[in-house]
Amino acid sequence: MVQAYNFLASWQLFPEKCVYESGIVPKSGNYKIESILNGKSLQISINWITVENEAYYAQFSVVPDGSQQPCEYQELADTVTAVIPDTSTLIHTFYKNEAQVLSVQHRILSNGFLELVYEGITTNGAAFVNKEVYHKQMSVLPYASSVGSVVIQPTKQGMIKHKALTAMEEQTNMQLEQIKQQIELLARQAQEIRKRRELSLMIYDAQINFKPQIRQVYYLYEKKDGNYLLSLVAPKEWAGSGPFKQFLASVQLLTDHTWVEVA
């Protein structure tokens, strides 16, 4: 099946490049084309999520020899044909009661994208044309595609995947939020440690005429010569402005021998 080679890939939907006149509108999608049965058939796997966050999944296989084959989705069609007229075109045609109800033309564009054009008839008898554009994926994503014109109901497999992914997203978002809060807490703790370290270095460089006691409040002053002094005397206890250049902070010695500013 040499002519099918260009189509064999997993294709990721470009929602912003799509136009829908009818059917389900996806917000993300994956359209996978594989060769099976020793290259005799093509298997199409379609996964997508709608704008309402509903998960859909469909899979069918066709022999691209132009013959009519049973359609695996009887609610859509009785039979389907597939043909590859050239290396850049693949056409699926769906029939219901021997009448054509949908044609899906796959075309490889000059930029390497895959364009799907759906021409069909709605249940009300109105004609419609939907267009989708995909880019080739390097790897297969587990979710999303389209086929906005094909009326396929949510499958059990699709809903299970959707519920699992929703639960996974909720759990990972919760875990990421917890980690974020832990990081913010660690950042605040690191900032407090840096402040205590800077204050402690200042105090241990100051003049201290007594042995400080744990949890006792002391008073740090800058002297007129620019040096520091740790004192037992509070600013309000000095007569006037006191014999110092300025009062810096009320401080307390902690059990780890660092100092912290207190109100």
Rank of each mutant, 00 (worst) to 15 (best):
D65W: 06
G226F: 11
W11Q: 06
K40D: 13
Q189A: 10
N130W: 04
Y143S: 05
L229M: 09
D205Q: 15
L165F: 15
Y95N: 11
N38K: 08
T258L: 13
G112H: 06
L8E: 02
V262Q: 05
N227T: 14
T79C: 01
S41N: 12
L42C: 06
S103A: 14
F94R: 09
K131M: 15
A126G: 04
G29R: 13
Q100F: 00
I91G: 04
Q246P: 04
Q3H: 07
A55L: 01
P26Q: 05
Y57N: 11
P15A: 14
I49C: 08
K223N: 11
D205E: 15
V80G: 09
L76K: 02
I108P: 01
Q171T: 03
E54Q: 11
Y143A: 03
L229W: 12
A99W: 07
H135T: 09
P235M: 00
S231C: 03
N97R: 01
Y143D: 01
I46D: 10
N30S: 08
H106N: 11
H162N: 09
N111C: 06
Y204E: 08
Q182R: 08
K223V: 02
Q216C: 02
N6M: 03
E261F: 02
Y56M: 13
A239K: 13
S28R: 15
F7T: 01
V19E: 14
V129D: 10
V260S: 15
Q191E: 15
G66F: 11
Q105K: 12
V150Q: 13
V83G: 02
V19F: 14
P243I: 06
I91P: 04
V150Y: 05
T122E: 01
I121E: 11
T50Q: 01
A239Y: 09
E192S: 14
I84F: 06
Y31R: 13
E192L: 15
E184N: 14
D205M: 12
F244P: 03
V117H: 06
A263D: 06
G148W: 02
Q69P: 03
